[in-house]
Design a protein around this nucleic acid. Structure first.
Lengths: 282, 282
DNA sequence: GAATTAAATGTAATAATACTACAAAATATA
DNA sequence: TATATTTTGTAGTATTATTACATTTAATTC
């Protein structure tokens, strides 16, 4: 709604403009204010406040304040803290899920759209994609492979460091490697990527900004999570990385229609008879 | 705040409980309601509404409604729609991530704390845990195994339906099976679970409410996502299920201190020399 | 099990807040 | 300059939230 107010400047009368600028100057303050207070501080009468609300196509001040609260609420970031042994199960659920949500919010704001675009076009045109990661990232690697395979892409996951190196040595110029790592500092992974580079593969990485891995990449999807080493850190990283993979996969699916979409549809049709009564994909 | 209301059930008086359940049954509705309406529909008097708000440590009904609006705003903000080919990369990122966030929000509000508690105690006391899932849930199964292994639990993942059946037949009374499925209707998985039951294992499931799988379970962690079959459905399900597994794993870690926590610490120390310069776990 | 006390709840009045009708300015138009 | 039109404010009304107090309900003690 704040954006709407900014956009509608032209349509406001003189006093309504006063109200608008008061609200825009410090929205937080007016979430708790009564109509009287807002009228006073913007130097207009109370009916003018009501008229201002009506100009915004709202029923009145009550709705205005509600909308303002909602507007600001979506900006408030999810706060969370360490889980400890005394937490109730409710608190446990809340902290774990909230921390996951907060890292997804970070991804949403950090992910560079142009790099996503570039990555999608590289992946959709390369002859083969291999996906590398070690440790906890192994899960993300397998997840990525599953998604890419469903799109009919020629993809291979390697979360074992020895297999990775062997595979990296065999790559060719029209292939590409998706490297996933939170720190971007795993020696083993870096070694594999160096080999892959020498083989001429295009390197796309999902990792932290100032990392050695980022430096070795042709395309770098930057994900920077908190530095702090809490118990939830690995979970946050994994959720964030998976979200990036999801974005790539969905992007590939919709960009390259109808080929991929058709393959997706078929992949689920094939499984139909393997479900009880109602049909829903696993 | 809705979570707070759920958590505080114990501290409410009889009439306050009526108010709480009215609010929880349909929070959306009461964002726009006056105190009078809420009083009427929960079958109590208006002062009781005020007292209810005060019990929540709020100044009164006005603040209550504000908070409720803000609570729901975070959900409203995360509404999303189908991704299509014309979307910009920015829109793509926004839609995919937002849909993930919205399913996590659902998990947060749906997850039954007491079942989580029960599941944690079953898992921490059983001799061995096996994790079953098919199709897309396979990723979640492997993820769960990795987490449980790090806690030093004796766990085994089976995403292959034949191995599952063999393993299920060999289970004993003090073992437990974690079954993961979105629909809870996969014939193959149901078959494995029936066998596991006959072997005397305790069945914990992460699946939809009214599903056959839920009916076969000793403990049921209900996750109900949207019925609609969009492209993002598998992603939403996987993220939601993983969040539940995360909650269990973290819960196990903090409840059973210091044993598990120490194992976790060791697991990361062992890997120290495998990272460049700064030390961060994958 | 009755009497006493404390807690919970509702009734009715009051205070606060939002809204409306109408009149006065201000501005535009002829 | 006179007249219409729009904008704004004053004062009153309606709605909504809150408080004070009475009543009921439940718990405790003898």
């Amino acid at each position: 709604m704040l954006n709407q107010i900014r956009a509608m400047q032209a349509e406001f009368s003189k006093s309504e403009t006063k109200v608008a600028s008061a609200v825009l100057s410090d929205p937080q303050q007016y979430v708790k204010a009564t109509m009287h207070q807002l009228a006073l501080e913007s130097g207009v009468s109370e009916p003018t406040i009501v008229r201002f609300c009506r100009t915004l196509k709202l029923s009145g001040y009550r709705e205005f304040r509600l909308r303002l609260a909602q507007d600001l609420a979506s900006q408030i970031h999810y706060q969370h803290s360490q889980v400890d042994a005394n937490d109730s199960a409710t608190q446990l659920v809340d902290k774990v899920i909230s921390s996951a949500i907060s890292s997804l919010s970070k991804v949403r704001s950090q992910l560079a759209a142009e790099v996503i675009d570039a990555a999608i076009s590289v992946i959709s045109t390369c002859a083969r994609i291999e996906i590398y990661g070690v440790g906890g990232a192994g899960i993300v690697v397998n997840d990525a492979q599953l998604k890419f395979a469903r799109l009919g892409l020629n993809s291979q996951p390697y979360s074992d460091i020895y297999l990775q190196r062997v595979a990296a040595g065999l790559l060719e110029a029209d292939t590409c490697v998706l490297a996933i790592s939170n720190s971007g500092r795993s020696k083993d992974l870096l070694e594999s990527i160096k080999i892959a580079r020498q083989s001429g593969a295009t390197i796309i990485s999902i990792t932290a900004s100032a990392s050695p891995l980022a430096a070795l990449s042709d395309l770098h999807l930057a994900i920077d999570l908190d530095e702090e080493e809490d118990q939830l850190a690995p979970i946050k990283a994994r959720i964030a990385h998976m979200a990036v993979v999801d974005t790539l996969a969905i992007g590939l699916a919709v960009r390259s229609k109808p080929a991929y979409l058709e393959r997706l549809r078929q992949a689920s049709l094939v499984l139909e008879d393997r479900f009880e009564t109602r049909n829903r994909r696993q």
